[in-house]
Amino acid sequence: MTAPLRIVFMGTPDFAVPSLQALLDSPDDVIGVVCQPDRKKGRGRKLMPPPVKQLAEAAGLPIFQPESIKTDEFFTTIEQLNPDLMVVVAYGKILPSRVLRYPRLGTINVHGSLLPKYRGAAPIQWAVMNGDPETGVTIMQMDEGMDTGDILYPVKLPVTREDTAGTMFDKLSELGGKALATAIEQLKQGNLTPVPQDEAQASHAPMLKKEQGHLDWSLQAETLHSLIRGLDPWPSAYGFLNDKRFRFFSPEVVNKQATEPPGTIALADSSGLLIATATDYLRIREIQPEGKKRMPVQDCLNGLRITPGDQFV
């Protein structure tokens, strides 16, 4: 039986929580947790701890929240902790080389895509937006590049037609924790073979911008179906009707050739809004009128006048 590893965990948001929990449930020792500083959130601008800190506090772990990890002070902290391995999951900042390479087993990362596809900040959203039938998580050995390190352990997961970026975030977060536990066990047994990434297959997943949510109804229904799901919950897909913004959710492709101009509402009833695209129709089953909450289309129709012939722009 191998000795427990001394592990430093670096992560910040909800996505990283199942991975930290997987380490806490393992025979290895989490000797320290590094996360981003507390930030002000909400209307009251109250200082809130990140989700990883909340779990670390509950587990009684030493917590470090440096404003910068590129200082001699932080490197000294890592030296004093003397980890065998560092695990990074959505920490939020690029790690300097001397920190990455300090542990004897290096630093590994849980990334929310099947690398080398979708390197970058928003891999889950782009996989859904592009209509990929599957995605997954990759346990990788970190290097100085942006998600360019050797692949250690990839795990695939199908994307259903009802999945959104939000649902896939939850699924991949849980999958990441399970994959991490398996990968570390194999690493301890010497059964992980690093595989260099194929640069010819690499693609990037940059952070999304709010304006990417403004839909172009002259696109095909299938393309819009993927975009709306990939933009849910943020920044969300939207359009304008009578100068008011409407956000769209829960789309469904209706395979019937559209005869109206793109963006035109062909039908508005309890089943949703049937909207013309470049090809077929797209049914929107949930909507969020400006200044209101997300709701089923039927509820919206009870309070707002939306009729066939109206056109979203």
Results as ranks from 00 to 15, higher is better:
Val89Tyr: 08
Ser97Trp: 04
Ala127Glu: 10
Lys70Gly: 14
Asp72Glu: 12
Asn109Thr: 00
Asp132Val: 06
Val88Ser: 00
Gly92Thr: 00
Glu67Lys: 12
Met129Gly: 14
Val137Trp: 10
Arg98Leu: 00
Tyr118Cys: 05
Asn109Ala: 03
Leu81Arg: 07
Gln125Leu: 12
Asp84Gln: 06
Glu67Phe: 05
Gly120Ile: 01
Asn109Cys: 04
Thr77Glu: 00
Ile139Val: 02
Thr107Gln: 02
Val87Asp: 00
Leu85Trp: 11
Met129Ala: 11
Val137Gln: 10
Asn130His: 15
Tyr102Gly: 03
Thr71Gln: 09
His111Gly: 02
Trp126Gly: 08
Arg119Tyr: 14
Ile139His: 03
Gly106Ser: 11
Thr71Gly: 10
Pro123Asp: 07
Val88Met: 01
Gln80Arg: 14
Leu100Thr: 04
Pro116Ser: 02
Pro96Ser: 14
Gly112Arg: 08
Ala122Val: 08
Gly120Ser: 05
Gly131Tyr: 06
Met86Trp: 06
Ala121Glu: 09
Lys117Thr: 11
Asn109Ser: 01
Tyr102His: 11
Val128Ile: 07
Val110Ser: 08
Ala90Lys: 01
Val88Lys: 04
Arg119Ala: 04
Gly136Pro: 07
Leu95Met: 12
Leu105Trp: 15
Tyr91Cys: 03
Met129Asn: 12
Tyr102Thr: 07
Val89Asn: 11
Leu114Gly: 06
Asn109Gly: 01
Val88Cys: 03
Pro133Thr: 09
Arg101Asn: 13
Ala127Thr: 11
Tyr118Ser: 02
Asp84Gly: 10
Lys93Phe: 15
Lys117Pro: 12
Ile108Cys: 00
Thr107Pro: 06
Asn130Tyr: 10
Asp84Cys: 09
Arg98Ser: 00
Gly120Cys: 02
Arg101Gly: 07
Gln80Asp: 14
Ile69Gly: 13
Arg104Tyr: 10
Glu79Phe: 02
Ile78Tyr: 00
Gly106Gln: 09
Trp126Asp: 09
Leu105Ile: 12
Asn130Cys: 09
Tyr118Lys: 02
Gly92Lys: 03
Lys70Asn: 13
Ile69Phe: 15
Arg119Gly: 12
Lys70Ile: 06
Thr77Met: 06
Gly136Ala: 06
Leu85Asn: 11
Thr135Asp: 10
Thr76Asp: 15
Gly92His: 06
Ser68Glu: 15
His111Lys: 02
Val89Met: 03
Thr138Tyr: 00
Val87Arg: 04
Asn130Leu: 08
Glu134Thr: 15
Pro123Gly: 06
Phe74Glu: 07
Val128Asn: 06
Gly131Ser: 10
Leu85Gly: 11
Asp84Met: 10
